[in-house]
Amino acid sequence: MQNVEIATIRAEPIGETATVYAGDYLNKLSGETIERECRQKLIAGAKKLVVDFSETEIVNSIGVSILLGVIDAAQDAGAEVVFSEVKSETQELFEMLGLTNHVQLL
Protein backbone atom coordinates (compact mmCIF):
# COMPACT_ATOMS: atom_id res chain seq x y z
CA MET A 1 0.00 0.00 0.00
CA GLN A 2 2.62 2.46 1.15
CA ASN A 3 4.97 1.42 -1.62
CA VAL A 4 2.34 2.10 -4.24
CA GLU A 5 1.79 5.57 -2.85
CA ILE A 6 5.46 6.37 -2.82
CA ALA A 7 5.84 5.10 -6.35
CA THR A 8 3.14 7.48 -7.60
CA ILE A 9 4.85 10.61 -6.30
CA ARG A 10 6.09 12.46 -9.33
CA ALA A 11 8.74 15.15 -9.39
CA GLU A 12 9.95 16.85 -12.52
CA PRO A 13 12.92 19.18 -12.49
CA ILE A 14 12.92 21.87 -15.18
CA GLY A 15 16.13 23.83 -14.88
CA GLU A 16 16.13 25.42 -11.42
CA THR A 17 12.41 24.75 -11.04
CA ALA A 18 11.22 21.46 -9.57
CA THR A 19 7.61 20.35 -9.66
CA VAL A 20 6.13 17.93 -7.15
CA TYR A 21 2.62 16.53 -7.26
CA ALA A 22 0.77 16.60 -3.99
CA GLY A 23 -1.75 13.85 -4.89
CA ASP A 24 -3.85 12.64 -1.99
CA TYR A 25 -1.09 10.91 -0.02
CA LEU A 26 -0.27 14.41 1.22
CA ASN A 27 -2.83 13.84 3.96
CA LYS A 28 -1.13 10.80 5.45
CA LEU A 29 2.14 10.03 7.15
CA SER A 30 3.35 8.77 3.78
CA GLY A 31 3.15 12.39 2.61
CA GLU A 32 6.50 12.91 4.30
CA THR A 33 7.93 11.43 1.13
CA ILE A 34 6.91 14.62 -0.70
CA GLU A 35 8.79 16.66 1.83
CA ARG A 36 11.90 14.52 1.42
CA GLU A 37 11.58 14.83 -2.34
CA CYS A 38 11.50 18.62 -2.02
CA ARG A 39 14.52 18.68 0.27
CA GLN A 40 16.44 16.64 -2.27
CA LYS A 41 15.51 19.10 -5.04
CA LEU A 42 16.67 21.98 -2.84
CA ILE A 43 19.97 20.27 -2.12
CA ALA A 44 20.34 19.65 -5.85
CA GLY A 45 20.07 23.42 -6.32
CA ALA A 46 16.40 24.05 -7.17
CA LYS A 47 15.52 27.69 -6.61
CA LYS A 48 11.81 27.25 -7.20
CA LEU A 49 9.53 24.50 -5.95
CA VAL A 50 6.17 24.08 -7.65
CA VAL A 51 3.65 21.97 -5.75
CA ASP A 52 0.94 20.81 -8.10
CA PHE A 53 -2.49 20.30 -6.50
CA SER A 54 -4.36 19.24 -9.63
CA GLU A 55 -4.84 15.75 -8.20
CA THR A 56 -5.61 16.92 -4.67
CA GLU A 57 -9.24 17.19 -3.60
CA ILE A 58 -8.79 18.26 0.01
CA VAL A 59 -5.93 19.02 2.36
CA ASN A 60 -6.17 18.03 6.03
CA SER A 61 -3.99 18.94 9.01
CA ILE A 62 -1.31 16.43 8.18
CA GLY A 63 -1.20 17.86 4.67
CA VAL A 64 -0.86 21.39 6.03
CA SER A 65 1.95 20.29 8.33
CA ILE A 66 3.83 18.66 5.48
CA LEU A 67 3.41 21.74 3.28
CA LEU A 68 4.74 23.90 6.13
CA GLY A 69 7.74 21.58 6.26
CA VAL A 70 8.28 22.19 2.53
CA ILE A 71 7.96 25.97 3.01
CA ASP A 72 10.33 25.96 5.98
CA ALA A 73 12.95 23.98 4.06
CA ALA A 74 12.63 26.23 1.03
CA GLN A 75 13.01 29.37 3.12
CA ASP A 76 16.14 27.95 4.76
CA ALA A 77 17.54 27.25 1.28
CA GLY A 78 16.52 30.65 -0.06
CA ALA A 79 14.12 29.11 -2.57
CA GLU A 80 10.64 30.11 -3.63
CA VAL A 81 7.52 27.94 -3.30
CA VAL A 82 4.64 28.01 -5.74
CA PHE A 83 1.32 26.22 -5.29
CA SER A 84 -0.40 25.49 -8.58
CA GLU A 85 -3.90 24.34 -9.50
CA VAL A 86 -5.20 24.68 -5.94
CA LYS A 87 -8.97 23.99 -5.61
CA SER A 88 -10.91 26.98 -4.35
CA GLU A 89 -11.84 25.45 -0.99
CA THR A 90 -8.25 24.50 -0.31
CA GLN A 91 -7.16 27.98 -1.32
CA GLU A 92 -9.53 29.48 1.24
CA LEU A 93 -8.04 27.23 3.90
CA PHE A 94 -4.49 28.22 2.94
CA GLU A 95 -5.41 31.87 3.15
CA MET A 96 -7.08 31.49 6.49
CA LEU A 97 -4.15 29.63 7.97
CA GLY A 98 -1.64 32.07 6.57
CA LEU A 99 0.16 29.68 4.24
CA THR A 100 -0.42 32.14 1.42
CA ASN A 101 1.92 34.59 3.23
CA HIS A 102 4.77 32.26 2.31
CA VAL A 103 3.91 30.97 -1.13
CA GLN A 104 2.85 32.21 -4.52
CA LEU A 105 -0.40 30.82 -5.85
CA LEU A 106 -0.62 29.99 -9.53
Binding site: L29, E32, V64, S65, I66, D72, L97
Partner: peptide, 15 residues
Protein backbone atom coordinates in the same frame (compact mmCIF):
# COMPACT_ATOMS: atom_id res chain seq x y z
CA UNK B 1 4.87 11.74 14.30
CA UNK B 2 1.24 11.80 13.19
CA UNK B 3 0.25 13.63 16.36
CA UNK B 4 2.82 16.33 15.76
CA UNK B 5 1.62 16.76 12.17
CA UNK B 6 -1.95 17.12 13.36
CA UNK B 7 -0.97 19.62 16.04
CA UNK B 8 1.09 21.75 13.69
CA UNK B 9 -1.31 21.44 10.77
CA UNK B 10 -4.44 22.31 12.71
CA UNK B 11 -3.27 25.86 13.41
CA UNK B 12 -0.60 26.07 10.72
CA UNK B 13 2.35 26.23 13.07
CA UNK B 14 5.70 26.37 11.29
CA UNK B 15 7.62 23.96 13.51
Amino acid sequence: RTSLHLLLGSLAIMR
